[in-house]
Design a protein around this nucleic acid. Structure first.
Length: 256
DNA sequence: ATGGTCGGCAACCGA
């Protein structure tokens, strides 16, 4: 089973990447974040030739999540249980005996703003969500853009970036709070080196070429799945590609 | 080096 996550930063403007990628890589599951498209405008026509099932929840300008699957997904739901107004940050589906939870964790904006506390609270509520809907001895995948770097080796300049809303003590503790429910970071299970990133800020000149990146996208698996993960890798964008995203594909293969 | 990015979508906001 091949599982993938990708922050698209607008699905419609990334179709030239996503559609060929589905055709050539043929994942079983592709989780998308920041689709930035309302449900009524979802690009069904462009995706139809791929043959993938699509479930999604979007908003007019921001957020938006989708799960694309080869087989028909079951038990589809959106949002945290108590949060119908911010449903476009979480999509859930059961695929091939595995529960998939795709999240776009709030970025947090600034540590002094209410958005930051909202981010921390959101992660606490996500832990409660897993307690309610799943068990750590079952096959569960939590994946997506978590807007959090777990460790120093997950950012290009840990001294300078310490205190950023995606790399600070509060966020590390909140992320650990969810992981302690029963998740293994499957990329780190296979690779312990610094310098492997999934995000390079557009605003930084030549960030990708200089590898000034962050590891903000994850595939987290419960132990029964993590021990069946054979490979996990970051599929870096081609530098020559017109309109790349600032995030990239994170791929994991499981023997299930 | 006194600027430098995107996307949505129509004036800025969010990342």
């Amino acid at each position: 089973m091949k599982i993938v996550t990708f922050n698209a930063n607008s699905l419609r403007s990334r179709l030239h990447i996503v559609v060929p990628w589905l055709k050539t890589q043929a994942p079983d599951v592709l989780c998308l974040q920041e689709t930035k498209v309302q449900d009524v405008d979802f690009p069904h026509e462009a995706l139809r030739p791929t043959g993938y099932h699509c479930v999604f929840r979007g908003e007019k300008k921001y957020n938006g999540v989708a799960i694309l699957t080869k087989s028909e997904p079951q038990d589809v739901a959106f949002g945290l249980d108590d949060e119908p107004l911010d449903a476009a940050r979480l999509a859930r589906a059961r695929v091939g005996g595995c529960l998939i939870v795709n999240t776009y964790v709030p970025q947090g904006q600034d540590r002094e703003l209410p958005a930051f506390q909202y981010k921390l609270d959101w992660l606490v509520r996500l832990r409660t969500y897993f307690e309610r809907h799943a068990r750590p001895d079952e096959p569960v995948l939590w994946m997506g853009d978590l807007n959090a770097a777990r460790e120093a080796k997950d950012v290009y300049d840990p001294e300078r970036l310490w205190g950023h809303v995606c790399y600070c003590r509060e966020v590390q503790e909140a992320l650990k709070g969810v992981m302690d429910w029963g998740f293994v970071d499957v990329f780190r299970q296979h690779c312990d080196e610094p310098g492997h990133y999934t995000f390079w800020d557009y605003r930084m000149p030549k960030a990708l070429e200089r590898n000034l990146g962050w590891r903000l996208d994850y595939i987290m698996a419960t132990p029964p799945l993590a021990q069946r993960c054979r490979r996990c890798w970051i599929d870096r964008p081609a530098r020559a590609l017109a309109k790349p995203s600032d995030h990239t594909f994170l791929v994991a293969e499981f023997d299930i």
